[in-house]
Design a protein around this nucleic acid. Structure first.
Length: 457
RNA sequence: GUCCCCAUCGUCUAGCCCGGUCAGGACGUCUCCCUUUCACGGAGAUAACCGGGGUUCGAAUCCCCGUGGGGACACCA
């Protein structure tokens, strides 16, 4: 069989959303699995609604996700141009073929595609008007995911608007023919358009590609499919929020497809090896941000520390707080290493590490109330300050030994110092070990924080 | 309204095609363990075959009908 050629054909009329990303991903996976060609085609025939800004978002998002295209804008290819707005000549040529075959007619200034069959009038309940229908045999769609689907396509439809611009159904099919597309993998919302498309392929005398309609992603709360306005719908959003692209891609792979065993975290190469169209689910899937967050954490934990530090740096740079935090690179790196095993996502980073970068951090009043009533926290603090003056602070173990020795000398445990020291050092009750905090903060700053807290308590 | 698609824990899903499993995994939630806080991790608990009819010795699995969910019905894509 000849080489597989698939295309992702977004239209730049809004931000790039998660359903589109998954459609792109499944096309890409299928191309990579079969050694085929993944084509990016921009469907920008609606001049009113398209924008260059959205086009850039599509390119950026695909690149971020790692979905490189073999043919398309910016990379070229033998079947270009790949933006429909630049393909007017191709459409004119194909329109002539259809006209020559007697499959078109003009009405109200527009060009219509003519179905073959006996015509009759019928009242349409939905559109509240009488329409002309055609007696036709059902169109058969052989879908690689759903099997055989039959649908009656019994009304002529517009292929070129009265303003001269060709419409989606027409250009979509023409380009699929011209670009030698072998498999059309797209959302299920297109399934009922497919009968129109099949009739067009047949009218052109062109081979009908294989279709594969993938299920839709439903919004996590409330009815309906996920739309661009829904929370968590935009790819760009995840990028901004510091999600790992690998994690998002892995999550998306599992929304509607699975390896048939218990694996969830999978290298993309393994997904490529296993991915196939019949393995795609037929039912819609509800988007679950908690599962995505978990996947992101799993990837974050597995990240080499240097890569994590680099990503953390990039995150701070794009989120205002930047300059002050990044002033001392080595210091910043130390803190990121402490934070990596503790956080679920990059978004938690600024709040989680804030007290390392300022002496002006807030003391959580609730935590304070809890800690200051147990034992003799002030006495413990005084002892710790004294011990800090002479203890070795170059390593976590040295600090731990010193505090343990102090505790033993008072017949106490490490824990008797831990909570109050943490509160004084960070203002909270959650975070890295206090030994690491003291080491990174250094003797002077640690001592100063303990003393300041003691004075205020 | 018409047409099309779909239906297993709250969610993502395995199992269905080729009927016989305590209906498996993961997220979430809860409990316990680990522990120097918080996380991570470990152990456990929770929870599902939409309903009704068939077919069959036997149905989550095959068939039909309901119901429910989703999608499409533009000179948008």
């Amino acid at each position: 069989m000849s080489q597989v050629r698939v295309r992702f054909a977004p239209s730049p009329t809004g931000f790039f959303h998660i359903g589109s990303a998954r459609t792109a991903l499944f096309n890409w996976l299928y191309a990579r699995h079969t050694g085929g060609v993944f084509i990016l085609r921009i469907e920008d025939t609606d001049k009113e609604r398209n924008s260059e800004q959205f086009l850039k978002v599509i390119y950026d998002s695909l690149r971020w996700l790692g979905l490189n295209w073999d043919e398309g804008p910016q990379v070229g290819g033998a079947f270009g141009p790949y933006r429909q707005s630049e393909r007017a000549a191709v459409y004119a040529e194909y329109l002539e073929k259809l006209k020559a075959a007697g499959r078109t007619y003009e009405k109200d200034g527009a060009t219509w595609f003519k179905l073959m069959g006996e015509r009759y009038e019928a009242y349409d309940e939905h559109r509240k008007k009488t329409v002309t229908k055609v007696k036709v045999a059902p169109t058969v769609i052989e879908d690689r995911i759903r099997g055989r689907v039959e649908r009656v396509e019994d009304e002529d439809f517009v292929i070129v608007r009265s303003d001269g611009n060709p419409v989606f159904h027409f250009v979509n099919v023409v380009d699929d023919i011209a670009m030698r597309i072998t498999h059309v993998i797209r959302g299920e919302d297109h399934l009922s358009n497919t009968s129109k498309h099949v009739e067009l392929f047949k009218a052109f005398g062109a081979p009908v590609p294989a279709f594969a309609h993938i299920p839709l992603i439903l919004k996590q709360n409330g009815p309906g499919k996920m739309s661009k306005r829904d929370q968590g719908a935009l790819i760009e959003e995840y990028q901004k929020r510091g999600f790992l692209a690998e994690a998002l891609v892995n999550f998306l792979c599992l929304l509607g497809w699975n390896p048939k065993d218990d694996r969830e975290k999978m290298a993309i190469a393994d997904v490529i090896a296993l991915f196939d169209l019949p393995g795609v689910n037929q039912s819609n899937a509800r988007f679950d941000e908690k599962k995505l967050a978990h996947m992101n954490m799993v990837y974050l934990l597995a990240l080499p520390t240097e890569r994590f530090a680099a990503l953390a740096k990039a995150y701070f740079q794009t989120h205002a707080a930047g300059a002050a935090v990044l002033a001392d690179e080595a210091y910043f790196r130390e803190i990121m290493l402490l934070a990596q095993p503790k956080i679920k996502g990059m978004e938690e980073l600024p709040a989680y590490t804030a007290y390392f970068f300022t002496e002006d951090f807030a003391i959580d009043p609730k935590v304070k109330d809890k800690i200051m009533v147990k034992g003799e926290p002030k006495v413990r603090l005084g002892e710790l300050i004294a011990a800090l003056a002479t203890m070795e602070v170059s390593s976590d173990t040295a600090i731990e030994e010193a505090i343990k020795a102090l505790a033993t000398s008072r017949s106490l445990g490490f824990g008797d110092y831990q909570a109050v020291a943490r509160l004084a050092l960070s203002g909270t009750n959650a975070g890295p070990s206090i030994t690491a905090m003291i080491r990174v903060l250094g003797r002077e700053r640690a001592t100063a924080r303990l003393a300041k807290f003691l004075a205020g308590a």
